[in-house]
Design a protein around this nucleic acid. Sequence first.
DNA 1: GAACCGTGGTG
DNA 2: TCACCAAGGTT
Length: 255
Amino acid sequence: MLQQTPVTRVIPHLEAWLTRWPTPADLAAVPPGEAVRAWATLGYPRRALWLHAAAVEITENHGGIVPQDVGVLLTLTGIGDYTARAVAAFAYGHRHPVVDTNTRRVIARCVAGQAEPAPPSRTRDLAAMNALLPADVRAAAVFNAGAMELGALVCTSARPRCADCPLAALCAWRAAGYPEYQGQKKTVQKKFAGSDRQVRGLILAELRSTRHPVTDAEIATLWPDPAQLGRALSGLLSDGLAVRVAAGSYSLPHE
DNA sequence: GAACCGTGGTG
DNA sequence: TCACCAAGGTT
């Protein structure tokens, strides 16, 4: 849920989710469409599908227990390098560098003296964090969490609160006089309004809103451009977020 | 490596 | 008003 999504927006959904499905087996026992429905408007609904798939994998292949090993976690659907390490470090207390967008920014500023991190690079980012990580297992877990928390609450992307920062005295960016970012530009995020993403979201919201099949005629009312509707619908079908239940009618995945 | 994938808060 | 961005992952 936290992938590319602010913590404050996740928390209520997480609590409701864990009340309904306390264990991987509980989630694995319901159709994937139920996960997509409960995901509501958290965004990136493929994550709901992937989380359900991971719950099935954990239930069938790992005795219903979330794996501890980073290499095993990486085999689960929707678990990438960040999430695998975060689970191993935060849930199980293992010593691994955990690097998210907040940590990257803290290292860029405090250590490298730059206003923004370079675009993410698994090798570089892990090496940089590894060089900072305490040797002690529990201290390493605290350090991972502390770096993320500092980036999320103090060393923020816009308007960092340097006056409140416990690392201000040793911050290389501050010492250098807050130079502007010189490095590679990050790829600009496309506009959402009018995009295929928005149309996908409209169709999926319609599918979530009812337990009856949604027809082509109903879908046609959601957006004026038929070509965009077609692209969005076929994308949802190929992603498994929607299934065709009869000619010209669709629902959330139910198997 | 780059495009793609949602939604909402913020300044 | 709108660009920016948020505990990334997959193809």
